[in-house]
Design a protein around this nucleic acid. Sequence first.
RNA 1: GCGGGCAUAGCUCAGCUGGUUAGAGCGCAUGGGUCACAACCAUGAGGUCCCGGGUUCGAAUCCCUGUGCCCGCACCA
Length: 903
Amino acid sequence: MQELAKTYNPKDFEQRIYQSWEQDGDFHQEAATDKPPFTIVMPPPNITGQLHMGHALDQTLQDVLTRWRRMQGYAALWVPGTDHASIATEVRVADELFEKEGKTKEDVGREAFLDRVWLWREIYGGRITEQQRRLGDSCDWERERFTMDEGCNKAVVEFFVRLYRKGLIYRGYRMINWCPQCGTSLSDAEVEHEDVQGQYWYIRYPGADGGEGVVVATSRPETMFGDTAVAVHPDDARYKDLIGKTVVLPLVGREIPVVADPYPDPEKGTGAVKITPAHDPNDFEVGQRHSLPQVVCIDFEAKMTAEAGQYEGMDRYECRKAWVAALADAGFVVKTEDVVIPTGMCYRCATAVEPMLSNQWFVKMKPLAEPAIAALKSGELKFVPERFGKTYLRWMEEIRDWCISRQLWWGHRIPAWYCDSCGKVIVAQKRPLACSTCGATGDALRQDEDVLDTWFSSALWPFSTLGWPEDTEDLRKFYPTSVLVTGYDIIFFWVARMVFSGIFCMGKSPFSHVFIHGLVRGADGQKMSKSLGNGVDPLEIIGKYGADALRFMLLHGSAAGNDMRWSEESVISARNFANKLWNAARFVIMNLDGRTQFAPTDGGQAQFAPTDGGQAQFAPTDEDRWILATTARVAGEVTEALEKFELSVAIEKVYDLIRDEYCDWYIELVKSRLYGGDETSKRTAQAVLVSVLSDLLRLLHPFMPFITEEIWGYLGKDGKLIRDRWPAGRPDAPWGPLSDAAADADDAGAVARIEALKDVVRAVRNIRAEAGTEQGKKVPVVLMADAPPALAEHHIKALAGVSEVTVIADEKDVPKDAASAILKGMVVYVPLAELVDNEAEREKLLKERERLEKYAGQLEAKLANEGFTSKAPAQVVEAERAKLNSAREALEKTIERLEVLMA
RNA sequence: GCGGGCAUAGCUCAGCUGGUUAGAGCGCAUGGGUCACAACCAUGAGGUCCCGGGUUCGAAUCCCUGUGCCCGCACCA
C-alpha cells in the first residue's frame, strides 16, 4: 500500500482524476437501462462567458445532486451545453472585427460575418466547458449541445411553425423596446429599470385660438416633435372647456387637439399630458383610441428625424438640451423640477432603451401562460424554496406578448418568407419552393432578415437536447427532467419560458422541481462585478486551494435561495478540513500493516478476510459499535437532507461526522489497540477504521469528489466502487451484518457508554485545563456513580491523561480536596490537592446551583401546568420530565458537594 | 404603487413542518512541537434570537404593527 503525502495537495491529483473519469466515460448515461431516471439539464453558459462564481455555485449544486443520485442507483443524466448568446456574441465579434480590421459587420456582409462568428465560437466557445471540468462537473460530455447546433435549430424552427399555425405567433407593427446601441428590439424582460436623476419641464402649449392653452409636464421634451395631441381626464374640471379645442406646439407651430381620455391622472403633473404615440407605450394606446397620427421624431440610432426640423440628425439628448434652451428663450418653459426618472436600460449594454414603433414578431402569451400557471397550482411544478413560485406566478399572470424578433444576424433566423410578387407571408420549416398564392419562385421569396431572441431557443433546452421534435428514446426516458437548478435572476427569462414551451411541445412541465439559489456576492456584500473590482475568479481559487475546497465553501455557505457572501477564509477552512481528512486516511493506511484486504473490493459486499494467511478473528468493542452505529445514523440524516435539497445541512452533517466523531474520538479511542493491542483487537480496529472510512468517503463524495476518490485509490481500490453505492444503514462490519434487533440493542448500549465516556473525558480535560495542570502530568480520577458505569478505564487514562481511576459508591469515600464535575448519573473528582482552589471550586458550585435551580424551576413550572401536560404530546412531556429528573439529580449532587466543601 | 427577502455570538451565517439549557466557521482567550494532521490538538469566554403586540400549554420559529437594510415587477406627467 502506498503512503499518502504528508500534506493534502489537490494539485497533485484533481486534474488526473477528472481525466480518468472522462476517459472511462463514467458520466455517460444511456437511455437503455432499467434504472430509474434522474435528469438535470444544465443551464447553458454563454459561449462568450468565462466561469464565474455564480456558475461555480450553480454547477456544484447540480453536480452534488447528480453524483448522489448516481450513487443511489439512478440513471443519472446531466446534460451540458452552451448558449449562442445572440446579442453578446454578435457584439463581441463585431467589436473584434472593428478593432482588428477597422470594419463594421455591414462592411463584410451577413454571410462572411456569420462565418467569423462560427470560427470565433470554434476557438473560444469551449473555454468555459474546460473550466467546468476543473470544477469536477460530472456531466455527460458525450451529449454536449449548443443552442445553435443542427438539432436545436430544428427544434426552434418546429416550435415557431407550430406556434404560428396555432395562431400563437403573429407579426405586427407595435411599440417595442429598442436598444440604439445594440441596434435591435428587446423583450420586456430584457429591459432593466434604473433610477436616473432627471427633470420635469413644464411647458406651455398655447391655445390655437389665442387662449392660454395648457401646461404639460414632461421629462422628455425632445419627443415634443412627435406630439399629436394633449390628453386630459374627462372629469377634470380644470380642462373641461379645452376638450375638443386645439393647442399649438410651441416653436413647432403644429396644431394638435386636446382629447379626453381616462389615461391622464388629474393628481399627477398638471393633469394634462402630451401625447407622443410613436415614442411612448402609453401614448401609443391613447393614440390608438383617438386615431391620432404617429409621428416618428427619433430614429433607430436615437437621432432626431426630419420632424425635428433644425435638430435633425442630432442625438436625442443633445437635442433635448438645445430644444429646452430654445423653449426657455421663447418663454414657453413655465418651470422645471428635479426628479428621479425610472429609465429602461438595455440589459446587455445599459443604454437607455427607446420605445419605437416597428414591425416585429410576437408570441401571444395568454394562452401559453394559462397551463403554465396551472402546472404550478396543481403541484406538477414545485419551486424550492417555495416563495419563488409566487414570483413566477405573478409574472405569468401579468404577462404581455413576447417580442421575439431581433435585428441581428447571429441567431436562429426566423422561418418566414415574404413573397415579393403578392406580399404573402409564408411560415414553414423549410424554404418554400414557390409562393402558395401566386406561384412566384426564386428570389421573389425573401426570408425574414431577423433572428430570434436567444431565450426562444433556450426555452426548448430541456427537450431539444433530448432529441425533440423526434420521438427519441432519450425523450421517453429522461423527460420530464427531475430538477432545474438556477439562480433567481433568470426565473422570467428562462424558467418560465421553459415551462410554457415544455407544456406546449411535450404536454408536461419540463421539470418537477426548480431549485433556486442566490447570488454569490463579493466579500463587501456587493454584487460581484468587474467595475467594482470585487470579483473572484473560481479558477484562481481552485489553483490555490483545490476544487473540493471551493465546492465545500459554496455548498456550506448559505441556505437555498439566499445570496451568499464570498469569503476566502471559508475556502481555507474547507481546505483545512480536506487536509484533516487526508491525514485521517493517512493514519488509517499507515496502521493497516499492509492489510489492503480490509478495503471493500466490490460494490456492495465488503471483503474483510485477511489475505495474509491467518483466520480473521474479530471482537468488536463499544467504540467499534458506537462509530458504526453513529455513521449509519448520520448517513440517514444526510440522505434526508439531500432529499429536501438542504445541501448545506447535508454537508455539515458529513463534516461533523468526519471531524468530530471519527477523527476526534474514534481514532483516538482506537490508538491503544493499534499500538499495543492483541492481534484480534488490533485486527478488529483496523477493519472498523477502514469500513467506516469507506462510508465516510462515500458520504462526502458528491460534495468533494476529488479527494474522496483519491483516498479511495490509496486504499488500493478501483475508483468506480466509490460511486457504486450510497451508504444506507451501517457500514459493512467484518463480523457480519448485525442488523437484527439484538445487535441494534447492543449498539444502543455501546453508543450510550461511549457518549458517557466522552462526557467523563471532557470533564477531566476541563478540570485539568482550568487548573492549569501541566500537559504531561497524570492525575488520578475518582468516579462516584449511582450504578457502576461500565466505562473503559483505559480510555479515560489514555484520553484524559489519567493515572488511576477509582470507582466509588459511598459518600464517605469522596476525596476531601478535589476538583469536581457533575455529570449525568455520576460525579467526577480529580483529587489533586495542590491543584485545587477550594474557593474557586465553591464559587463555581454556587453558580452551578443557581443555574440548576433556575432551570429545574422552569421545568417544574412547565410540568405543573396542566395545559402543558394535557395538550402537549406525551413524548414531549416525557422528555421534559426526564430533563427535570436529571436537573434535580445534578442539583442534589451539587448541593451535597457544596456541603462537603463548606464543612 | 404591487410583491418578496433579510435582521440570531465581535464577523459571516445555519436553525426545516412551533418543544434544543439556541448552533457552526472564522476571530478571541488559555495551555500544548503528543509519534495522522501546527492546514494541528485540548479547554474556555461570548447571544434580553431588531422593537412591540397576538395565537398557543409552549414562539428564534406562526400571525400583525413598527423600525432598519436589500431585491424584483410596474411607472419616463
